[in-house]
Amino acid sequence: MAMAEKASPNSPILKNAVKAFLIGGLICAFGQFLFFIYEKWGIDEETVRSLVPTTIIAITAVLTGLGWFDDIAKHAGAGTLVPITGFANAVVSPAVEYQTEGRILGTGAKMFTIAGPVIVYGCGTATLYGVIYYICSMFLGA
């Protein structure tokens, strides 16, 4: 085992971290840019708050469909995984891949194979947080 670890090269962590920081930052800056643009067009803030992620999801979905997203993500790593782009890609990529098994058992059933756990534990954590918040607010009267 020790021999195997020695022979197995590690990932270039620093290089990966810098690339993730730059590309991830770029995506966030792009989001902020969209925010300004939409606001400038006179859209109210609440709508803009859903419009920005929706736009980024749509762009990711198109890039995934074209097969370009994985080429970017290969370099970006966490830079594309952490923003909403990662989630959108996780839903669209199996949907595309499993088309060959049909709309229902292919695309429909397999769409959430990667994103499923995020949804399950995301909702679970949100529920738990809600319960804690509810109990606390009962006692604190907030």
Partner: peptide, 11 residues
Amino acid sequence: YPLAYGAQRST
């Protein structure tokens, strides 16, 4: 993973 999924491959 699906081909279009943006995963990084280990060295």
